[in-house]
Design a protein around this nucleic acid. Sequence first.
DNA 1: AAAATTTTGATGCACGTGCCTCAAAATCGT
DNA 2: ACGATTTTGAGGCACGTGCATCAAAATTTT
Lengths: 351, 351
Amino acid sequence: MQKSLRPSTPNMARPTTKDLARVAGVSRATVDRVLNGREGVKSETVEKVTAAIRELGFVRNLSAANLAKGKSYRFIFVLPRSGDQFLDEILRHIHEAGEVFASDMIWAEVQPIDENDPHQIAGFLATLSPGDVDGVAIMAPETPQLRDAMTRLAERGVCALPFISNQALSGDNLVGIDNRAAGKTAATLMGRFIHAPRGQILVIAESMQSRDSLERRLGFDQVINDSFSHLTTLPSLETYGSTERAERVINAATQLNPDIVGVYVMSSEARIPLEVLARADLPQQIVSIAHERTPFTENALRNGSIDALITQDPGHLVRSAIRRLRALSDNLTTSTSQEKIRIEVLIATNI
Amino acid sequence: MQKSLRPSTPNMARPTTKDLARVAGVSRATVDRVLNGREGVKSETVEKVTAAIRELGFVRNLSAANLAKGKSYRFIFVLPRSGDQFLDEILRHIHEAGEVFASDMIWAEVQPIDENDPHQIAGFLATLSPGDVDGVAIMAPETPQLRDAMTRLAERGVCALPFISNQALSGDNLVGIDNRAAGKTAATLMGRFIHAPRGQILVIAESMQSRDSLERRLGFDQVINDSFSHLTTLPSLETYGSTERAERVINAATQLNPDIVGVYVMSSEARIPLEVLARADLPQQIVSIAHERTPFTENALRNGSIDALITQDPGHLVRSAIRRLRALSDNLTTSTSQEKIRIEVLIATNI
DNA sequence: AAAATTTTGATGCACGTGCCTCAAAATCGT
DNA sequence: ACGATTTTGAGGCACGTGCATCAAAATTTT
């Protein structure tokens, strides 16, 4: 298998379209027609050119091509303006990626929206035209309005990508993790970390309206029921992002259930519930698992107040979205292995 | 309302060096001298140009620059020819990445070497000159010969990068994980997964000569001793890659120690020890943890014969090495956040 | 065989930057 | 004010590809 130990040709220049033309015995114009799939070339001529491509191992020089086309990309991330720490991380990585990708003629911008106002989102998407924007990554709950708006966007030639969350029909186009599997992963760790012979698990979400939380809950319950039947899961508590409400519902639940041995925080904003729990007087050996790496959760992991984090790499999410938007708008395929977003498990030793 | 959200400049072309020259009130030649750090420009003129760069938000168009320079990169991965499954994955990703990076004028090749013959490695490195090769990623045990060869390589202007393993002095240049932390992570999971009140843990390596295994062992023992003192770790068993020897040492150890509750396989080739263990008649509830994702370990995770895997993403390793080699040979800095190789934890639900 | 049509060739400009040369201008030292 | 030196300007070619245009050649249709 050691094909090319020493390079066959130390200074072999990469073949160009000129070489292709020479080898195929045609003109550069014809090579161009074949390479760019234009009409009006006899099929045998096409065959001659593709044979030359194979023979020389020609690969189009993207730098030159992009330069010639003068093509640049403008992508917009449509994100909730909520402002939890996870979103802050995403924003940071969008700006960071923006600088890196700038030399590839890619601009990435952020459009904050009210995630609970479908009309506003649809309205914004309706203003986008192919001239202005090449692609949109959308993080918003799936609603009929949004779905329609995305369909119309695609018809107008602007590609759209569901980002991180909350959209089901997207199928394999989603940039983000499988939340059901994430819930299963949390449950497996929870079940194996808990040594008590029996007990109850507190499950906390920001809101169960969101598809993310629903799917995580589904996966979580499935694994707990199937594999850890000595544990029982309590009904989901919803904080709605309010410290006060969190305090009320959590305290009520802890008083009602004396045998809590685990806490699972499903929302990406773990700060509020965890702070409330810290003030509650629970036995110390409770196993707690949360989602997403933020300054707060990272610190909690270090000092032991969290046992594990289920995360997705925000930088990877952002870069993957950008690469896939570019591929979409160029009608290319992306290397799937690179774009799969992993469900990461963080404990104190591999932060 | 969302009208105001429209991008401030719908059709603003990216500023070019021409624009810089115009705004700075100098010629394009001078802009060029400043951009490329050439001598003989008054400091106030430099200041004028940098001010214009800031004002316009100029970013060098890398496509055009690379095209103009006609620069292309040739990188060589120096890898053991051993051929375990983990290495196969690495090879696959090198070839895959080779195709992707080809359009960026980057060639990646593989040079198999005898990892236990320092002279052969040093000899090969000695044949490399800047004309042939722009960078080398080396996966081999650290020896004085190799260290010398790498130093001389650097002096000749070929940059070298330790890849994945086995080199200590490399410092922050290593492409790979912190093996001590990886061992700690394995230990933490081991300790928390084991519910028995006491017991012994079998530790298996291919060879304790390799720095990887030493460091993993160090981290593993530290956490077990500090946090799970009800467990004891047995001396490392070495398989030397031989099924026969593995069988002998493992069977001897299991007969000598009746209370084995966990198995930790440190080497990247987990197949042999795990197959041997499967044939041994051990109690079923043993917790076993291994390293690296291969077809074998992935399958073992799925069918429950392994409880967790500590891995590093081979695709990420390869791409990161290539990006860092390019940055090194261009004297640029890489975005550190993207290049950090994560210690991943895989369980059955997040494969 | 002539006309209509399809296919191909030849050629040139453009993209933005790197790099080169040569002369003009500014600055310095005396 | 002089020559010597440093700094700047002007201009052009090159990289490899995309995209035109127009004419020439090959092929098909009438």
